[in-house]
Write a protein that binds this DNA or RNA. Structure first.
Lengths: 247, 247
DNA sequence: ACTGGCATATTGTCCGACAATCCGACCATC
DNA sequence: GATGGTCGGATTGTCGGACAATATGCCAGT
């Protein structure tokens, strides 16, 4: 990872002003002295405080905007501090993975690691969760007219499950994986006729295990479910090292 | 998540020019018609093509730069298309999780899901990997003078392990988790005297299992290792729902 | 209290300018 | 021929100023 381990000097790079400005504001946000909802000073005011031109401030603001640290909720005019929306972060992660030429098998392995534990957590968490949404997505998988709709319902199933687990880290990890797996799943459903019914059986069992608060059972079913997914993929005759693509 | 489900109309928001420009370039990159390494046209040229002012182009470029889609490798002047560096994406994810007030226990659960499978994969992958770096980080943990160094060596251990697994998704997932867990680990090591030696024992066993290509054993040891971590944390008398902070 | 209108502030976009510096070409030297 | 120096043009970083569109806040009127 460090190809120039023998380099004696760091390349000295005086950062441009727009980056220094954005870092300064970013630090304030990360240190929580600027908190979500707080409005930022106006561009002219920022320019005055940093003693730079407004254009420079604007470039800095665009960086923060792109990072999701500031935003314009409600289509307003002034920028306010915000936290990166989970969906935003997830899609960024998805993009990064896709550009990294991640293969199906890598995603599947990650899925195999994450999903079963997530199911177990969803089953064991004491919070009196509402299982209706989960059941709804199962129904959506069943009643979906085309493969497209079925696939997105399956993704939704995993997302809801992660939400039930109450674990934000797992939620954040799950979304990019299912999102990237979706096209593969779609092809699989197209080619393997019994695929959908097998998915439904597994989902129902998982739901059942969760509603009965049996973590081990939920975990086991989920593991089987994920493994089944891989089998279906092989059955569909697609190479495991196929690189995933964006939608 | 959709508080205005009864809204009849989407708020029509004609996006500002700088966003349209950045989206246009972004699309080209995501579609791979602009590929990493390709130099972008100059700002003036882009301004001409999009028929906007150079300032507007610059704001768009700052967005892409912040997204890691373009960069300036080697401190050059011209921007070239690049893929988001994994470290960059990981730190963004770390930030997002930290701002989301993720708790220790959530991170730990994610770790428990990811790390054992990662260890198993590292042990079973047929590639003739070099285990020396892994052994080195263990040595670093042992010889570390202060808690700070020990902690960063432990993080490094997990990162190397993920690298050995050859799974980019797991690598990407591991980094933010260990990074956010680091401060907790640090406090734990400070307060639990035998903590470090237990870590070392586990790490050696994992290394041993990997070098002997015993996935199950590696997985089991890693699970024990992670569970041990939690125990140490409780022993240190820190609440499990403590929110993690950045560095 | 709600509404509508008005002045002001703020953003989005443009123009033009200039210093710093990176790049490539050209040239001298060994 | 390879290395190193010089130079001019191209490109970026930053600045100042300008103006239209519109969000915001204030005030009057009902």
């Amino acid at each position: 990872m460090a190809p120039e381990a023998d380099a004696m000097f760091e390349p000295l790079a005086p950062q441009p002003a727009y980056r220094r400005v954005s870092s300064a504001i970013e630090q304030k946000i990360l240190k929580r002295s600027l908190r979500p909802g707080d409005p930022l000073p106006t561009e002219t005011e920022l320019a005055r405080q940093f003693a730079v031109n407004r254009s420079t401030v604007r470039e800095a603001l665009r960086q923060l905007e792109s990072a999701g640290l500031v935003g314009r909720p409600g289509g307003g005019k002034r920028l306010v501090v915000t936290r990166p929306a989970q969906s935003e972060t997830a899609s960024r992660l998805r993009r990064a993975l896709a550009l990294d030429e991640v293969t199906f098998i890598e995603l599947w392995e990650a899925m195999l690691a994450i999903a079963p534990r997530t199911a177990a957590l969803a089953a064991q968490h004491p919070v009196s969760e509402d299982l209706a949404p989960l059941a709804q997505t199962i129904a959506a998988v069943e009643s979906a007219r085309n493969a497209e709709a079925a696939v997105s319902a399956v993704s939704e199933f995993f997302a809801r499950l992660a939400a039930l687990s109450g674990n934000k880290v797992l939620m954040m990890a799950m979304e990019p994986v299912t999102g990237l797996l979706a096209p593969s799943l779609r092809r699989m459903i197209d080619r393997v006729p019994q695929g959908r019914s097998r998915i439904l059986v597994a989902q129902r069992c998982i739901l059942e295990a969760i509603s009965q608060r049996k973590p081990d059972e939920a975990e086991a079913w989920m593991r089987r479910h994920v493994e089944d997914f891989r089998r279906g993929y092989e059955l569909a005759g697609i190479a495991l090292d196929t690189r995933v693509a964006l939608r």
